[in-house]
């Protein structure tokens, strides 16, 4: 069936013309106000009385170029730590969240341990966990002790695992009980129901907050440098101490933002998609 030929009425033509004029006007206003604000900012900053001093100590291109290789080296450590710790923390969080859903007296100790873990590590400041693991544990002088880097990564995984476990748990609890009833009525076991019905829906729903925590983790991985390993910020600090100039910090900051952009973009995209899916029914 082809739709009937449609000629817009005069009223509709007037409405369309009005909307076109309005949208052209909004674009012009947006362009103008952006340009005005930008000019104002540049004039205010470069015209400030201390601008020359600030430019010398924060934006020295030569010192920035000198510091770049060391800062990049440090950043490579951040990246590797981020990937390993994010994977570890996501896995740990998921396991803890699932353990906390187990019912029945047999699982009481497991549930209690899992709950105790999330309470402890969400309450404990990351720096303290880091010091306890990287300074305290090596003090035991056990044989086969992992490196400080691994211990520092472990501190990050333990701390973030606690947060992520709560996010996963919220997702699991948001799946309606009728979904479980439907799965069980088909003969799926509790494990199969979790694996094929509950978790896929739960993870999809909480993907935005999960990724948000990964973005936060990206900034916190640098804290392992407190225990010795040299990350991007620590490398910048060393370079700053040598040159008495803060440009290396700016270099590190810019690199961090560049590193975060793809991650944040993915987070926004996932958020948008899940919002659309939910409003779409």
């Amino acid at each position: 069936m082809t739709p009937r030929e449609h000629t817009p009425s005069a009223a509709q033509l007037r409405r369309s013309a009005y909307r076109r004029r309005q949208s052209l006007r909004s674009v012009l206003i947006a362009a103008f106000s952006t340009a005005a604000l930008g000019t104002l900012l540049v004039v205010a900053v470069t015209g400030a009385p201390g601008w020359d001093r600030v430019r010398q100590s924060f934006l020295d291109p030569e010192i920035g170029a000198d510091a770049l290789p060391a800062v990049l080296d440090g950043l490579w450590l951040n990246v590797r730590l981020l990937v390993c710790c994010a994977a570890g923390a996501l896995l740990l969080g998921l396991v803890i969240a699932v353990l906390r859903t187990l019912r029945g007296p047999v699982f009481f100790p497991v549930r209690a341990l899992a709950a105790g873990y999330t309470y402890t590590f969400r309450g404990l400041p990351l720096i303290i966990v880091l010091y306890l693991l990287t300074l305290g544990v090596p003090g035991l002088r056990l044989r086969g002790m992992p490196s400080v880097l691994v211990l520092g990564g472990l501190a990050l995984v333990l701390t973030y695992g606690g947060y992520l476990a709560e996010v996963f748990r919220a997702g699991i609890e948001s799946v309606h009980p009728s979904q479980l009833a439907a799965a069980r009525s088909l003969g799926l076991t509790y494990r199969q129901t979790m694996r094929h019905v509950v978790l896929p829906q739960a993870v999809r729903r909480v993907a935005p907050p999960l990724l948000n925590d990964v973005v936060a983790l990206q900034k916190d991985v640098g804290l392992v440098s407190l225990a010795g390993p040299i990350d991007a910020v620590r490398a910048a600090q060393i370079a700053t101490a040598q040159s008495f100039n803060y440009t290396p910090y700016v270099v590190a900051g810019v690199l961090f933002v560049l590193l975060a952009i793809p991650l944040i973009a993915v987070t926004d995209w996932v958020t948008l998609r899940s919002a659309r899916r939910q409003s779409g029914g």
Binding site: G187, H196, V197
Partner: peptide, 30 residues
Amino acid sequence: RRRIGMVFQAYNLFPHLSVLDNITLAPRRV
């Protein structure tokens, strides 16, 4: 439960699975 089929008032299909995957989930996994 494998010997009993149940259908609910609110359908309770799995929203993250296609029609085909909804139907084949139990035959494959169970």
